[in-house]
Design a protein around this nucleic acid. Structure first.
Lengths: 361, 361
DNA sequence: GAGTCGTTTGTGACCTGTAACACACTTTAT
DNA sequence: ATAAAGTGTGTTACAGGTCACAAACGACTC
């Protein structure tokens, strides 16, 4: 039943080969300072000769550490269209990656799981059973108090990679969604638009709520009536693109005119552009369109998308950095890091002519 | 140094609570048949009462199994735009597996790693040290003999999820790239095109080679000169979209005329469309375009893409199924499973008018 | 009433590391 | 010279499961 591949040498074999005790081998493996250079050399030779490889299960059992970071996505798919995993992230800062001998350590591996809000507790229990060293949480739809989340995590270092502005007791790295939406709305206002619609992501997501509220508030502040709004339907298995298409059609069906629209992301924008074309309208001729993310395809569409760019790579780097800090120093103060988005103006937005403009609907 | 979260009950605590021996608890956990129903009930109650959770490290140490499947991507990023798998769930003691996909039912987790061709051996050694139960390999650019790969795997069950037509000794699930390219080329020929260009993915990838060769061979068979060809540049950190743009421009720069082009995938097609527009040409008016994948955005572009669809979901399901077979029956015969692609005709291709057509360049 | 059998349960070894402590054997301080 | 401190190495006890085997027990046979 056991795998047929277990003639692997153990620490004791190495010890025997080198003529020392197994503990000395362990010391060499763990870079203990108090080993005589000659002994270390002999042990290293034995390790090489036997092709010894540390047994991670055994190490895990005693150290209670696994060298694994668990990435948990709650209520959805991890947005892999966003660059996440430069493997270099998985080396604790200061230790370079790409090392190749057993002595130099393994770095961390990423274990991906998805779960629902209801299952998060259970999922974290399993994480504990796996002795994962830290958890990287992507849960934009999770509404939970810090204390409750900390209780669930039960001591496992944890970093949220989403917008959790109100949190003060856990570490997170997120983008300023208020600012992002200000950029989008202000840009459209500057261009003269007064009827600005919005297609949000699902409003169960915190990000989407912030954006929606900000959009609404800004327009009201300018004495404008918030244009029609639609919510992307993420409850089904539809792709983001399709969702954008559907939501855009809903927007049209509402009958309220608008000359500009804000889309929740560049993928939804692809679908939205299609819906607009179907309607016989043109971007930016008839409708200006702003979206979020600055995904790779944004500048190649027709028209190229004006979009609010997020530096996801930086977000991930920081989040992992904070996670490693927490792993090494369990009781450091939590970080809350807000990253600022940037507006990238391209061809999908245009100044509203003073006169003679038909607005959508 | 050990994590501060270790007051977790052990199997012995449960045994004490239930008034039985630890071995009996183990039997209950592992569903051994020879446990008296009353005893089992008592043990389950104790487990629930103490909130016992099996220690996976300890289990790993004795069973040599980790309940982890490692996904290794060689020389690139895993194409997450493709649906991969419902990530795994641990199978809790006393609770039957709740869901039905193989991964969940058996309680596996997926560990993602990336490596280079040169590092694959080392990566598989680490996989062995982690005692992963199986490896799911995505390595379209890996040119390696079966025997060599088997030697590296060293007994770990392994399935390749890419096209490795010549392999007979390892299990893989791939698409028939020859057929895929026949579909694309034949479609264009049927529409009257005689000057058919191609933009391949990097020719280091086996798939790309097959496609290129097939394209070339088919055209020659029809007495046609293979149109201009360009290779997507995947050596840099460019996105696929950008690569498509660059390659398309290269194609134009070669000066050889063409009325149709085959793009390596729908993402590259986005960039290519942009390059074509920049050139003042239209799709399908001046150039017909076929790509591969049928990605979610394909039908929403302008024009909607004619594309060769692959059922990646089925591919993944089959690959995992074969992997589990191999895990359970280490010495089964390897499977080689070829899936057939399907042509989806949309608006990016059009019949070539008999006369008066300007071709690109 | 002893022998056989099958079921259920317990005992102790084992898997492979690390941690804590003990023990020689220096070297330095008093 | 003797105590104190510091080095390098070995001994032993874990960590928390599983496995092999033994033992207890009742039922059944003869």
């Amino acid at each position: 039943m056991a795998a047929p591949r277990d003639n692997r040498p153990t620490i004791r074999d190495v010890a025997h080969e080198a003529g020392v005790s197994h503990q000395t081998v362990s010391r060499v493996l763990n870079d203990h300072p108090k080993v005589a250079p000659a002994t270390r050399t002999r042990v290293l030779q034995a390790i090489r000769k036997l092709g010894y490889e540390r047994n991670l299960a055994a190490q895990m059992l005693t150290t209670q550490r696994s060298q694994i970071i668990q990435v948990i996505t709650v209520d959805g798919k991890f947005p892999f269209e966003v660059p996440l995993l430069d493997p270099a992230h998985f080396w604790p800062p200061g230790r370079p990656p790409a090392r190749t001998t057993p002595l130099e350590g393994l770095g961390y591996s990423a274990l991906y799981t998805e779960c629902t809000s209801e299952n998060l507790g259970r999922t974290l229990e399993i994480a504990a059973a796996r002795m994962v060293d830290g958890v990287f949480l992507y849960a934009p739809k999770l509404h939970i108090e810090d204390d409750e989340l900390l209780a669930l995590a039960n001591g496992i270092p944890l970093v949220r990679r989403d917008f959790a502005l109100e949190s003060r007791r856990i570490t997170w790295v997120g983008f300023d969604q208020v600012r992002a939406t200000q950029l989008a709305v202000q840009h459209l206002l500057d261009l003269g638009h007064r009827q600005i619609a919005i297609v949000t992501g699902t409003l169960r997501a915190i990000n989407a709520c912030w954006r929606y509220e900000t959009w609404r508030k800004l327009l009201l502040e300018h004495g404008l009536e918030p244009g029609p709004a639609a919510e992307g339907d993420f409850t089904t298995t539809k792709s983001a693109v399709e969702t954008g298409y559907d939501a855009m059609r809903q927007l049209f069906d509402q009958g309220q005119p608008f000359t500009a629209v804000i889309l929740a992301n560049d993928h939804m924008a692809v679908g939205a552009l299609h819906a607009i074309r179907e309607r016989g309208l043109r971007v930016p001729g008839d409708i200006s369109l702003v979206s979020y993310d600055n995904a790779p395809h944004a500048r190649f569409l027709d028209p190229p998308l004006t979009t609010v760019a997020f530096d996801f790579d930086l977000q991930n780097r920081l989040a992992f950095q904070f996670l490693f800090e927490q792993i090494q120093q369990p009781h450091t103060e939590p970080h809350q890091h807000v990253l600022l988005p940037e507006l990238i103006v391209r061809g999908s937005t245009r100044a509203l002519p003073r006169s003679g403009r038909k607005s959508a609907n």
